[in-house]
Amino acid sequence: MKKLLPIILIGIMMSSCQKEVRTDYIIEGTAKDVYNGIRVYLNELDQRGRPVPVDTAIVLNGSFTFNGKVPYPKLYFLTMNGSPGRIPLMIENTKMTLDVDKKILSNSILSGSDSHDLLHEFNTTLNKIKEDLNTVSKNYSDAQFLRDSVNMKSDKVVLEKLQEKLANYPFDFIEEHSNSNTVLEIFQSQLRVANADYPKIKTLFDNLDQSVKITQKGITIKSIIEQTIAKIEAQKNTAIGAIAPPFSAPDPEGKELAISEVYSKGKITIIDFWAAWCGPCRRENPNLVKIYDQYHDKGLEIIGVSLDGRRGQQNPKEAWIKAIEDDKLTWNHVSNLTYFDKIAQSYNVNAIPAMFILDDKGAIIAKNLRGKALELKVAELLN
């Protein structure tokens, strides 16, 4: 029995050292020298990046408290009346303490959240790389000004290494911490980077822990990645010289018509994405009628792809056919009557009117022309 007693005591001590498991969070804040009654806000960012308060606390005797629940560790931003700026906080269901610096909110310290510690580690390292990069960039510029070839050469080597380090660090960090919800915030920042490497981003996302991917934020990021990759592919598929993506859709009589059936009949073919509800499209139609009447006998074909079927249209097919008749559009027409459908997506069409000119083999030879520019291009190709 005497031998068992130390083992029991050790077990009790070990269990008491484990982090408390909670299903809610509590943030105990201290705000030194802040007047009673000052309001503190916990905010989420909306789709435009604007803060939206989700909870409010009032400072009393230098203290305030937030209580709540999160489905998974989430990023919030704390603001306080009378203090500029905001504090990023990774909140998770645990007990946390927050020491607020009212003069410089960014100097405030949150303790108790592993997710927040991880985000802080990432930002600290990232900022250090940026500082080093700025220093070396200045040194390189100074060496260029002084025509110091020796330092120019050495600074350039360091500069290139730091640039590579800066580009790779977010990806390396995500890969190292693939089981943490914190990396979703880093993913989101990478999605805003110009010319982001989306295939690499997708691979990293696919390798995340399943528990991270199935969160609402994970699902949203996955959707953005997939939509952006599809858009990139569509841009490649509709570049000048590319073979136009194939498609077929019902004509006004319900018969399927393929784009290949149209461009094979003429020397050039205009694909015109439009809709009965689209004012700019309807204003462009007289110009198209004029061009078609003038050049159809010389080998011009047109196929109108209607994007009617948007929410609120009472009878999309009726509106489509009436617009064809009213505007005297005597060429080929097709529509799935489902607004910006798969055809529009495959051509990376996000706004209408949008036009593509194909040769008799289906290769794209011009696009995004309207008015006089379209007329001149058709004349150049057929005269």
Rank of each mutant, 00 (worst) to 15 (best):
I7W: 10
R370Q: 09
H333R: 05
R39E: 14
D132A: 08
N179F: 09
A319R: 08
S108K: 05
F66Y: 00
E164V: 07
A379S: 14
S137R: 12
D142L: 11
D117E: 11
L307D: 03
A323W: 00
K200F: 02
C278N: 00
I225Y: 02
A167M: 15
L381W: 02
M355G: 09
L75Q: 13
A167W: 15
E318F: 08
I365E: 07
D327Q: 06
N348H: 03
N336F: 12
G85L: 03
T269Q: 02
F77Y: 15
N43Y: 00
L89Q: 08
P316M: 02
V136M: 02
V21Y: 10
M14T: 12
D272R: 00
N383R: 03
S83E: 01
P353N: 03
F273Q: 02
S346V: 02
L208E: 01
D360F: 10
D24S: 14
F205P: 00
I321C: 12
V378D: 03
T220V: 09
T135H: 10
F340V: 07
L118C: 09
Q18G: 10
A194F: 14
L369S: 11
S264F: 10
N93R: 10
P6G: 10
V158W: 07
P84H: 05
Q190C: 06
G299Y: 05
A323T: 01
Y72G: 00
W320M: 02
K69V: 11
R39D: 13
N207A: 12
N350Q: 14
I224S: 07
N43C: 01
P245M: 13
R311K: 11
I10S: 11
I302W: 03
I221A: 02
I232C: 04
V100A: 04
G62D: 05
D142C: 07
S335N: 02
H177D: 07
Q235A: 14
S211V: 08
A239L: 09
C281M: 07
N134I: 04
N179S: 12
L166N: 15
K367L: 10
Y295F: 12
R86T: 05
D297I: 05
Q163K: 14
L381P: 00
V334T: 00
E318D: 14
Q190L: 14
Q210Y: 12
I8N: 10
Y169S: 05
L78R: 06
N151M: 09
Y72P: 00
G304I: 00
